[in-house]
Simulated assay, not measured.
Amino acid sequence: MTTTDSPYRMSVSFNVVTHLGLNLYSNIPAVLSEAVANSWDADATEVSITVNKNTGTVVVQDNGSGMDLVDINKNT
């Protein structure tokens, strides 16, 4: 399944990270580290990070079992 085929959608605006994360995270790598840590918390055994410079996106994918489809999509 490619990223575009996935029924799961989650996006975080850089402004949200800037406003909410200034006191929590010192930089973007720290934010990515937290996303990966959340994957491990969801019992993932595999985590991948894909950076697309052309679209300006970073995709963190895992095989964990954290939130279901409804939980993910209602919190985007």
Results as ranks from 00 to 15, higher is better:
Thr50Gln: 08
Asn38Asp: 13
Thr45Met: 01
Thr4Phe: 05
Asp68Glu: 07
Thr55Asn: 11
Gly66Gln: 01
Ile28Thr: 13
Thr57Ser: 11
Met67Tyr: 08
Ala44Tyr: 04
Thr18Val: 15
Asn15Ile: 15
Ser11Gln: 12
Tyr8Gly: 02
Lys53Arg: 11
Val47Leu: 00
Ser6Gly: 04
Asp71Thr: 15
Ala30Pro: 01
Asn38Thr: 12
Asn73Ser: 01
Val16Ser: 11
Lys53Ala: 10
Ser26Val: 10
Ser48Glu: 07
Asn54Asp: 13
Met67Gln: 07
Thr4Ala: 11
Pro7Ala: 04
Met10Ile: 13
Asp71Pro: 04
Gly66Ser: 05
Ile28His: 07
Lys74His: 10
Ile28Pro: 02
Ala35Thr: 10
Val51Thr: 13
Val31Asp: 05
Leu22Thr: 15
Asp62Met: 02
Leu24Ala: 14
Tyr25Phe: 14
Leu32Thr: 07
Asn15Trp: 09
Ser13Leu: 08
Asp41Pro: 01
Asn52Thr: 14
Val70Glu: 13
Ser11Cys: 04
Glu34Cys: 04
Met10Tyr: 10
Ala35Ser: 09
Ser39Tyr: 00
Ala35Trp: 03
Met1His: 03
Asp62Pro: 01
Asn54Ile: 12
Asn52Val: 12
Ser11Phe: 06
Trp40Ala: 06
Val60Ser: 04
Ser6Phe: 02
Leu24Asp: 15
